[in-house]
Design a protein around this nucleic acid. Structure first.
Lengths: 245, 245
DNA sequence: CGACACCTTGACCAACGTCAAATCCGGTGG
DNA sequence: CCACCGGATTTGACGTTGGTCAAGGTGTCG
């Protein structure tokens, strides 16, 4: 089938679903897992695929929430802005992660692609009507949101009470744990985001992140092999520093 | 019926449900709303009532999650601790709020009563089996958790990027909005929590909170009528200060 | 009325932010 | 292949917000 490109949400291209859930590489780690064949078929009937270039916005804070997404490949950052431009990155998404949970009618954060991203797109209205019929789907969503809430509370502890060094250590450990859980390479840890993104995630400045990374390198806790990667040399030391975060 | 007291979770007394959902004062603002009579009856069959004195822990971070609760009356704080004692208050609960969401088997935060508290207690196992039969209940829970997640993301923005003054202003506005939503008195705002609790919620120290409140009083934005209350004199100025948070 | 916990205020300090400059690195074009 | 460009990152010097430490005030409850 020739992909028919249509505009949606800031021009991110979409096509009629060209891939099938059957062959979906993230099915087992996404919200679509543990769904009966018949349910999966109904779900597949409403999805289309989408993609975004690095740097492109997928959804915008404040926009009407028309669609929800699953990240199929690539990495995404979520952020909120204050009127004067101060920014807080609230999360990073990787394949299998769900995007766009908004109980109100509008998105509460902006999502921007860090790398080229492939997406699985669910029209919100149609997904909501499916929820009434497929309890398993609502159950998975509840799981998903609850997991995110727990992570958000850990992040509050980090932002409210940890030192710069503890924040950076916690961040690296979190990325390593997630890479492991998702079956990606753990060491060196891949960092698809810029120092500025990391800073805005950790409530610091790029300068402080950079200085802290330098300190960790000088104490032989990590090594910065190539750009966009950090190798963990002393996991125990890093865990100590992170204060269990 | 004479309440039979049994020990549970750190000695918080419980009784067989002596009140009925029919007469529950928080039914319409809690997770139990929009439930059919038959469903409500099944829910009521598994609940017992509980209570806690001011200062008493209701659940402990790390404990096995045996029960979930609804706050019926009073106020509760939630917090997480670092090994060295640093504390982050992750939320305050008021009547109608749900407590104990934990997808793993253990609680991820401690909940402590700020005032005498009455609770509605749901054994987790039995609630989970009800979820399979009552889609409306799972739906309400999803709503509840999603709302909490949105609030948590706002709090990340506050903790990561706002100044002390903006944090305190945002906090007062949040309390005022919640009081309004719950039909409690809005002005003066009631503060059942201590300055230390506020500080640990806002990622500040008691001294900074105190100084900031003093500043706001001196600029005639608020007045500290009596202990445990703050009157908002200039709502617009406070909203300006909070930077839309 | 006195003890105690909580809150406020003051003096000083340090972690992190700000501003500025240097360096690194990948991409581009000759 | 190599020089150059521009953004990202690192490093340095210095400033500021909010933390720390300490003292004093205030309300509450026995």
């Amino acid at each position: 089938m020739a992909p028919v490109k249509l505009a949606f949400s800031q021009g991110v291209p979409q096509t009629k679903a060209s891939a099938h859930c059957d062959s979906c590489e993230i099915r087992e780690i996404s919200v679509c897992r543990s769904m009966a064949a018949e349910e999966l078929a109904r779900l597949q009937a409403i999805i289309t695929s989408g993609q975004a270039e690095a740097g492109q916005a997928i959804i915008h804070e404040g926009d009407s929430a028309e669609n929800l997404f699953n990240v199929v490949s690539g990495a995404v950052k979520l952020y909120k802005l204050l009127p004067d431009g101060r920014r807080q990155v609230t999360g990073f998404l990787f394949p299998g992660d769900f995007l766009g949970i908004a109980l109100n009618e509008t998105y509460v954060y902006t999502a921007e692609a860090l790398t080229p991203v492939r997406l699985c797109r669910f029209p919100r209205r149609r997904l909501e009507s499916l929820l009434k019929d497929i309890p398993a789907l609502e159950h998975q969503l509840l799981n998903e949101v609850a997991t995110e809430l727990v992570a958000a509370q850990d992040q509050m502890l980090l932002l409210g009470r940890k030192t710069a060094r503890e924040r950076v250590a916690s961040f690296l450990l979190m990325l390593a744990k997630r890479a492991e859980r998702h079956g990606r390479q753990v060491n060196p840890v891949e960092l698809p985001m810029s120092r500025a993104d990391i800073a805005d995630y950790l409530g610091l400045t790029t300068e402080t992140v950079s200085r802290t990374v330098t300190q960790l390198r000088q104490s032989n806790t990590i090594s910065t092999a190539s750009r966009g990667e950090i190798e963990i040399l002393d996991l125990a030391a890093l865990a100590d520093l992170s204060e269990c975060g």
